[in-house]
């Protein structure tokens, strides 16, 4: 690059870094402000135009102690578990959709959905869920054995892919009540498990789509030669495909982790006392006296810190050296 090019690069990158960092700087200083510092027009630099106060930090860590800690632990557990699950399920599904041909017959899919819907309706009506699920399963197997063979029309990979991504289209407002009812019936409300399952399902489509595109970039010859050498699809997937797509995996993991880490509306409904997560605590700082900017800032800061560390750790893997090495090796 020419020196002018380097300079321009730094100007652009630095400019955007400033845009990104300034609001964060503002949050940081706000966390040390008293209400009067916020209300009375802006003050910018601690010790220069205002005297910082640890009041907000004390409130969050001393007065609220357990009320901060519990959501924190919940958030960590829920976000990590659901991201790992989503990544696991989504990566395999994405690979499957790229390398295998699926032609599930429409009728069979329809029957399966019908049974599932029946079970769901039965559960809402108050039938114990174990019985409902078992009955639906029986019904489906019966129907498949008797009617299933008549259907010819099938759906393909494209349809499955689109169906998956379409799961993210419905706004959460529309589905939050049904999901609440579902978990209430199986007695999982206000547990981390309910939140984990929901987040895994919500983030799955993104993993599938992103990972599929990363896999597409891997040249198929490597896999083919491995297959000729007798490697099973699992082995190929584990030893060739996954290592080659580390950058994609890291980026995707970070993405879904962030989504799960920050989700609000579903958590609001699925949790009350025990499983509440941090975004709820942040939203709660807007109460009858208006937003409590200082408490909110403290919470945003303690919430963002672990994810930043995670990003720093994962950034290494997104870096190009690793990939190049793998390709050449």
């Amino acid at each position: 690059m020419t020196p002018a090019g380097v300079l321009l690069t730094y100007v652009v990158l630095g400019g955007w870094a400033l845009v990104v960092l300034f609001p964060l700087y503002w949050i940081l200083t706000t966390s040390f402000k008293l209400p009067v510092h916020v209300y009375d027009g802006p003050v910018f630099i601690p010790y220069v135009d205002f005297t910082p106060s640890g009041d907000a930090w004390r409130y969050i860590f001393v007065d609220l102690r357990n009320d901060t800690l519990r959501p924190y632990v919940n958030t960590v557990v829920v976000a990590l578990t659901s991201s790992v699950l989503a990544l696991g399920l989504g990566t395999t599904a994405g690979y499957g959709l790229l390398r295998f041909r699926y032609e599930p017959r429409l009728g069979v899919v329809g029957m399966f959905l019908g049974s599932l819907a029946l079970a769901a309706v039965a559960i809402t009506m108050g039938v114990p869920w174990q019985i409902a699920v078992a009955a639906a399963l029986g019904l489906f197997i019966l129907a498949r054995q008797t009617l299933g063979r008549r259907f010819v029309r099938a759906v393909g990979n494209d349809d499955i892919s689109f169906w998956m991504i379409s799961q993210r289209i419905l706004p959460p407002v529309a589905v939050v009540i049904p999901i609440y009812v579902m978990f209430q019936r199986v007695g999982l409300l206000d547990t981390r498990l309910a939140v984990i399952i929901t987040y895994t399902a919500v983030n799955l489509p993104i993993v599938v789509w992103l990972m599929r595109d990363y896999f597409r970039n891997i040249s198929i010859e490597l896999e083919e030669s491995a297959a000729i050498d007798g490697a099973s699809p699992y082995r190929i997937f584990r030893s060739i495909v996954l290592p080659l797509s580390t950058p994609g995996l890291a980026a995707t993991f970070l993405l879904v982790l962030v989504f799960a880490w920050n989700e609000y509306l579903l958590a609001l409904f699925l949790t009350s006392a025990n499983a509440q997560t941090l975004p709820l605590l942040i939203a709660a700082q807007n109460a009858t006296r208006g937003p409590q900017w200082w408490y909110m800032s403290v919470l945003i800061l303690i919430m963002i810190t672990p994810v930043i560390l995670m990003a720093i750790a994962l950034e290494r893997y997104i870096a190009k050296g690793l990939l190049v090495g793998a390709l050449k090796g």
Partner: peptide, 19 residues
């Protein structure tokens, strides 16, 4: 490779969608 993801999505989406 595919089924676990499909099953989870169906479980979490069919009923809410219909309701």
């Amino acid at each position: 490779f595919l089924l676990p993801a499909v099953l989870l999505l169906m479980l979490m989406s069919i009923f809410p969608l219909l309701l």
